[in-house]
């Protein structure tokens, strides 16, 4: 699964950069078309939910999604499947 930020909803509050234990969200640099600085994703493949959601059949962690006040964080199916680019960190 792939982590995405919905740019039509995000208001750039940066709360997601604060709560992710892997620090996947980092403050963005330039404003988008709506003038909002949407956070960038730093190697989102590391997210526990991206890797294991299907295997466990439930949301793992998901703190960023619960915290995002604007319902902008989602996971999308990846088609075709992209092999994991990062080794699991312990």
């Amino acid at each position: 699964m792939k982590l995405t930020i919905d740019e039509t909803r995000c208001k750039g509050c940066n709360l997601c950069t604060k709560v992710c234990p892997y620090k996947i969200f980092v403050e963005g640099k330039k404003p988008n078309l709506r003038g909002i600085v949407v956070p960038d994703l730093d190697r989102p493949e590391r997210c526990a939910n991206c890797r294991l959601q299907r295997l466990y059949g439930r949301t793992l962690c998901g703190v960023c999604q619960l915290t995002c006040p604007d319902q902008a964080i989602h996971w999308e199916d990846e088609q075709p499947y992209e092999p994991m680019k990062v080794a699991i960190e312990y």
Partner: peptide
């Protein structure tokens, strides 16, 4: 998106 200000805790 709702009308709350950016970062308003109500959304959470």
């Amino acid at each position: 998106p709702h009308i709350y200000c950016a970062g308003c805790g109500n959304g959470t």
